[in-house]
């Protein structure tokens, strides 16, 4: 014989046996259409040529930055070195 608990569990498991189909508003399609048109406008504006131009610009910018970094590094180091020398020359109160 089933206990009260077992009966309760069976009732819960069977409570969705005769579940009714759910219905949704048909006017939601208007929202889909507006999303489609919104996204299509964006797609029309971005041509393949523009994408390649943007990619080339980024590559060029990166190359220029890289070159500038490579060639400017020793100068920067010497600039730091010379500023330290100047600082030492004017430091009249130190013992050295």
């Amino acid at each position: 014989m089933k206990t009260e608990k077992e009966n309760w569990i069976e009732e819960i498991l069977n409570c969705v046996e005769n579940i009714q189909p759910v219905q949704v508003r048909g006017d939601l399609f208007a929202g889909i259409q507006s999303r489609l048109h919104g996204s299509l406008v964006h797609l029309e504006h971005v041509s393949t040529r523009t994408v390649w131009l943007a990619a080339a610009s980024i590559a060029l910018l990166f190359a220029l930055n890289f070159a500038a970094f490579i060639y400017s590094s020793p100068q920067k180091q010497s600039a730091v070195h010379s500023s330290a020398l100047i600082q030492n020359s004017f430091d009249i109160y130190s013992n050295s």
Partner: peptide, 19 residues
């Protein structure tokens, strides 16, 4: 409360969805 569940089973279905 699932809208498809009949009224007398609404409370029971809450336990089921929790599980």
């Amino acid at each position: 409360n699932h809208p498809g569940v009949v009224m007398e089973n609404k409370e029971k279905s809450q336990y089921l969805f929790e599980a």
